[in-house]
Design a protein around this nucleic acid. Structure first.
Lengths: 235, 235
DNA sequence: ACCGTTAATTGTCAAATGTACAATTATTAA
DNA sequence: TTAATAATTGTACATTTGACAATTAACGGT
């Protein structure tokens, strides 16, 4: 006997939402849009969309991300499945949240003016629909946890970046101050960084040397444990 | 204008599956059941169930876990949402996978003979339905990752346990050998363990002292970063 | 050409932690 | 009493971390 469906079970909508992080060289930002349909039309929201037939969650998140940013092949990781029965007041909808780390310099606003996107400082996130605030909170925590042991924050940087920028990034993630000398010793000891001859003279008179990622070592190191992040207890 | 539903969108089934870990003092085990309905009836499977109306994912996983083990208030954490459109051949079904760490000594088989559950060594997992093998693989990796920095493995131990047992546990998780002297120094330095006067004389003539968890310190430490696990590069 | 300003770069020492390695002890059974 | 087994304990060296400040490079103005 073959069945055609699982009878007597309830089906529900499934959506994806993307927590999109960017870094402008000074601080970490979050890309939000104005929701374009009811309910809650016009309020700030994470970019999202319903999972389509034949589409996996990952592909769905990639599609949504590309819709908004035009970007592909960016760092995208599943964060958590939010399934509270009442999280969407209109109808039960599960949301698979993904967080993305993008190189903000590759982002072009024009592509997606339809969504009225804006970058927000992590410290100035507006009121959001549904459980999106909770999603962001969890994404922040995951980013902290993860970047303490894996060099994932480089995904937020352009191809060339300076040590002060990198340190700003880590300090932003951990909301703490780090010692310049110890920080540079630590990151350079990984062997991940290749010093360039060129300097970035935007931020100071002396200028700061650019560095590039050693992509071979990066891919190799990514899946081993690292000891990044601040000193335990100082977070 | 108020809408009643999101029109033109497809709904899907959502289930939870539980990866249930246990530890018998020697090695880490996995609790599997024989699937009781079509398709794939009679094959080995993770314990799971459909998410019911009004039930969050977490509650759903707790219900499923209790159904099989009779246990409540055990360590249960969301692992990943599996959403491949064809993961269930009968009908599109998303699965929110949870992993559970239970004290195997509290488990009583009789409660759930209906499911024909059996404990399997992690090295001898049978062929499984759908993507359950992938779920287990991911759960193993997460357990490794997590227990390297948080003292989560204590959830697998009974109230009283010995240092050799604890070391077996860590060695099982990391599939590697650790030095007894360094291991005991490391775990004792956390201050998490309280030495008992009693000994466990089952495993040796000399007997090994029991230890208990300092539950206050445990809860406090749980959310700070620790440096457990093996030496990097030795995994 | 010199000076002042700004921010990047570089170094050292002490403390804590990690690593490698083996002798001693408690208990049981013969 | 002895032999056997597995638990317990210690030490020296290497590595990493943490705290701390002087020097350097480039610019703009004098």
């Amino acid at each position: 006997m073959e069945l055609k469906r699982y009878n007597r079970q309830n089906r529900m909508l499934v959506a994806v939402d993307c927590i999109i992080f960017g870094f402008d060289g000074q601080e970490i930002k979050l890309l939000l849009i104005k929701r374009g349909f009811e309910p809650e039309k016009g309020r700030w929201s994470l970019m999202g969309g319903f999972v389509q037939p034949g589409e996996s969650f990952e592909v769905s998140a990639q599609r949504v991300l590309k819709q908004l940013t035009g970007l592909e092949n960016v760092y995208l990781e599943q964060l958590y499945a939010f399934g509270d029965p009442n999280r969407d007041p209109l109808e039960r909808t599960a949301s698979i949240a993904y967080f993305a780390l993008i190189d903000i310099s590759k982002y072009e606003k024009q592509l997606s003016d339809h969504f009225h996107p804006e970058w927000f400082s992590l410290k100035k996130v507006p009121s959001l629909i549904f459980d999106h605030k909770e999603m962001i909170q969890m994404a922040k925590e995951k980013l902290r946890y993860k970047s303490a042991f894996q060099p994932v924050l480089f995904e937020l940087l352009p191809a060339k970046f300076t040590l002060p920028q990198l340190q700003n990034l880590y300090e932003g993630v951990y909301e703490s101050h780090m010692d310049k000398r110890n920080f540079s010793r630590k990151v350079l000891s990984t062997g991940l960084l290749i010093k360039q001859k060129q300097k970035d003279k935007a931020g100071s008179k002396k200028g700061a040397f650019y560095y590039k990622l050693d992509k071979k070592k990066y891919k190799h190191l990514f899946n081993s444990f690292l000891k990044f992040g601040p000193e335990p207890g100082k977070i």
